[in-house]
Design a protein around this nucleic acid. Structure first.
Ligand SMILES: Nc1ncnc2c1ncn2[C@@H]1O[C@H](COP(=O)(O)OP(=O)(O)OP(=O)(O)O)[C@@H](O)[C@H]1O
Length: 719
DNA sequence: GGTAAAAAAGTTTTT
DNA sequence: CTTTTTTACC
């Protein structure tokens, strides 16, 4: 028997040995689902399948990375197997085939911020008046919604007729204009990556036959989180060979807001009648107490498929519950615990999970104070810094000259005397000729009849020279070239004198990231690096776990750590306040906690804070309602937690002490409160620069004109 | 058209 | 409270 098969139980072995035909593995947390996939990849290779004939996809970069590492460990040949996320796989197929849809292979991938910029631009052109910010936000939400649901732009008209309530005014028009803008910019957003692959597989016989033949064996992990589009892509890819293995757990479905459809796995045999079904029941990861607590908790969900999960492991320690007065103290306590137990648990063995990224800050500070090393995962901060975005915009523009969003960003950065007026002229010109902005700028300064401005000519010449140089030199010099040619450092120094050094450090880090990438991927082009950066947004430095791992509960899925802390287990955070109204949403929050708890191999602590600073004001959160659902005998409560968790003191429906002020309309005579100016009285209204403003006499600041949306109503003056 | 000061917005979760 | 956007003035 192959050595690979020896680390498996009988059921797992059956799954790994399963050769042809569809199969679904449905099992609870820590039962070895990922182990099945990684072992099966290695085993298939060992028994003659070529590494590149296997495709393994999952959902998050973190989980894909973990899977890649485990597989590599078993069979080095898996280096040539595509083990990745849906989005990265799609991006790669589109580099090959996007030409069939009218894109250039060097298309840009637009992230959330780019999408917002593009939408702003479009909304401004289509609806010159009105509250642009709210429209942009609404439209973004709408586009995200329909595109996640798999509604193509060609289908939006019909969709709007069928579900008028789902489509805001102007939605159809905006969707069309948006796709046109992206096509013009040779760009795709994250949803387009999937939709375009699906479109090719549906409509293009050539692509379908090439991709359909390419992968003999396809495996999908975390299948409960796939959406309709992803499942359909997989169906097309597997149609010819029918060797599809999907693996998942409906109790770990935590991406419903991204269109995840757990019925994909629950009703798998409806799509593939006769598919083999394999259930795993033994948890190999956690202690008895952890399995018992998590199982009981998730059993409170009404919507779930029945399953058994047991462990032969000893009961181990109790679930530790700790209550603190505020977020800072909570973080402090966690840091002290980690430090005190450093001989039992190496820092690398410890993870801290939380519901929202914003919570990481106080935790970081506490760890820093104790000098505990840590790695923060999933923080997008680095790529959102303005200096990084600026440099990236230049590089992206050189990889894809049609990229208008990038052009708009660097057009006057560093400042070179090109303002809104000149931009407007350029935009009108570009639209009338159907050209990208850069191309339009080029034409307008070369065509003598158009007498483009000298400033614009300077920009065009600069960009052209830079592009030539960058495309001809090794990619690790690209950042240097941009800095030198644009004199960006001088601009930074002038504009941000005190942050200059920090910002330059960040840029250096970006440059170091390119060098490292180039070393790892021989012959990689600038476009390859940009794609990686757009899709796998981890920090530029090499991602070797150093110290304590910190991440959101979402990101923790699929991982495991000996020692786990979950911070902020409070009503309002977990379940999150935006979810408490809706039963289904609360069930998802419960699953989130289930996922978090089952990441722990030996010990877990759940902490909450009585009060937590939001931005302006503090809010009080009672301990999470989920504590009532974990058997009391499995929990070790600290003294303070004991008091707070008395059942009668934790009402099922919790009311919050949000400082939201009174309900009602602000009118003349209203007593109002403003975050900066404090208390004041409304003395009338005025239409100022297109928006309605309240004229307020503030007690300490006198008269100001303020948008009513910024004011909180505090009562009425007595006549 | 550039800049500083004032006002508004932002924190659910990810590709 | 911090960061981004808008406005007022040069
Ligand atoms: N047959 C086995 N014998 C011993 N250990 C096992 C066995 N199968 C899996 N394990 C171990 O159990 C742990 C959980 O396995 P794995 O990550 O594959 O589970 P999973 O089902 O994918 O979990 P989850 O759904 O919670 O992410 C891992 O540490 C793995 O090495």
């Amino acid at each position: 028997m192959s050595e690979l098969l020896q680390n498996l139980n009988d059921v797992q072995r059956q799954a790994v040995l399963h050769r042809n035909g569809p199969v679904v593995v449905f099992a609870g947390a820590g039962s070895g689902k990922t182990r099945i996939i990684t072992t099966r990849i290695a085993y298939l290779i060992e028994t003659g399948v070529l590494p590149w004939e296997i495709l393994a996809v999952t959902f998050t970069n973190k989980a894909a990375g973990e899977m890649r590492e485990r597989a590599l460990h078993m069979a080095p040949e898996t280096k040539r197997t595509m083990i990745t996320t849906f989005h990265s796989a799609s991006a790669r197929w589109l580099r090959e085939f996007a030409g069939e849809l009218g894109y250039e292979p060097n298309y840009s991938i637009y992230d959330d911020q780019d999408v917002t910029r593009a939408l702003k631009h479009i909304v401004k052109q289509l609806m010159p008046k009105g509250e642009i910010p709210t429209i942009v936000a609404d439209m973004k939400h709408f586009l995200h919604h329909v595109k996640t649901a798999g509604v193509f732009v060609s289908e939006i008209e019909a969709y709007a007729q069928q579900y008028p309530a789902q489509v805001p005014t102007g939605g159809v028009q905006i969707y069309r204009a948006y796709q046109e803008f992206l096509a013009q910019s040779n760009a795709m957003d994250f949803n387009d990556l999937l939709l375009n692959v699906l479109l090719l597989l549906r409509k293009n016989e050539r692509v379908k036959s090439i991709l359909g033949a390419r992968y003999q064996y396809i495996m999908v992990d975390e299948f409960q989180d796939t959406n309709r589009t992803q499942f359909e892509i997989i169906q097309h890819l597997a149609e010819r060979h029918q060797n599809l293995m999907v693996v998942g757990d409906d109790d770990q479905s935590i991406y419903s807001w991204r269109g995840a459809t757990p019925s994909n796995i629950i009703d798998f045999d409806r799509t593939y009648p006769g598919a083999t079904r394999i259930a795993l029941e033994e948890n190999y990861r956690c202690t008895g107490n952890i399995v018992a607590a998590a199982s009981k908790l998730v059993s409170y969900n009404k919507k779930r498929a029945a399953k058994t999960l047991f462990t032969n492991a000893p009961a181990g320690e109790l679930i530790e519950v700790h209550l603190e007065v505020d977020g800072e103290m909570e973080a402090h306590w966690i840091a002290e615990e980690i430090y005190a137990a450093r001989n039992t648990y190496d820092f690398e063995d410890v993870a801290i999970f939380y519901r929202t990224n914003a919570q990481s800050r106080s935790l970081e500070e506490a760890l820093l104070r104790r000098r505990i090393p840590y790695t923060l995962y999933g923080s997008l901060e680095f790529y959102e810094r303005l200096e990084i975005k600026d440099i990236l915009a230049y590089l992206r523009l050189f990889a894809n000259p049609s990229d208008d969003v990038s052009f708009l960003r660097i057009y006057n950065v560093p400042t070179r005397g090109l303002g809104d007026k000149a931009l407007e002229t350029l935009q009108v010109f570009a639209t009338s000729r159907g050209l990208s902005l850069w191309k339009a700028a080029e034409v307008s300064v070369t065509d003598p009849a158009l007498k483009g401005s000298p400033k614009l000519r300077y920009l065009v010449d600069l960009l052209k020279a830079m592009r030539t140089e960058i495309l001809e030199s090794p990619i690790n010099e690209a950042v240097k070239t941009v800095l030198e040619a644009t004199e960006y450092p001088a601009y930074l120094k002038k504009k941000y004198p005190d942050q200059y050094a920090d910002k330059m450090d960040n840029i250096q880090e970006l440059a170091a990231g390119i060098i490292e990438y180039e070393a790892k991927n021989e012959g990689a082009s600038l476009a390859d690096w940009i794609e990686t950066v757009s899709l796998v947004r981890e920090d530029a430095k090499g991602q070797v776990t150093k110290g304590v791992s910190m991440m959101t509960l979402h990101m923790a899925k699929g991982l495991e750590f000996p020692r786990v802390f979950i911070a902020g287990v409070e009503d309002g955070l977990l379940p999150h306040k935006n979810s408490v109204e809706d039963m289904a949403a609360v069930e998802e929050e419960r699953r989130l906690l289930y996922v978090g708890i089952t990441r722990a191999k030996s010990k877990i602590s759940l902490t909450c804070a009585k009060r937590r600073r939001n931005f302006n004001n503090e809010m009080a959160h009672p301990p999470s309602r989920f504590f009532q659902e974990i058997p009391a005998e499995l929990m070790a409560l600290s003294f303070k937690a004991q008091e707070a968790l008395q059942p009668e003191k934790t009402p099922v429906m919790v009311s919050y002490e949000y400082d939201e002020g009174l309900e009602g309309t602000i009118e003349e005579g209203s007593q109002v409160f403003h975050p900066t100016y404090g208390k004041g009285t409304v003395h009338g209204f005025d239409v100022h620069l297109g928006s309605r403003k309240a004229v307020v006499n503030f007690r300490d600041f006198g008269y100001r004109k303020i948008r009513p949306s910024q004011l909180q109503l505090r009562g009425y003056a007595l006549d």
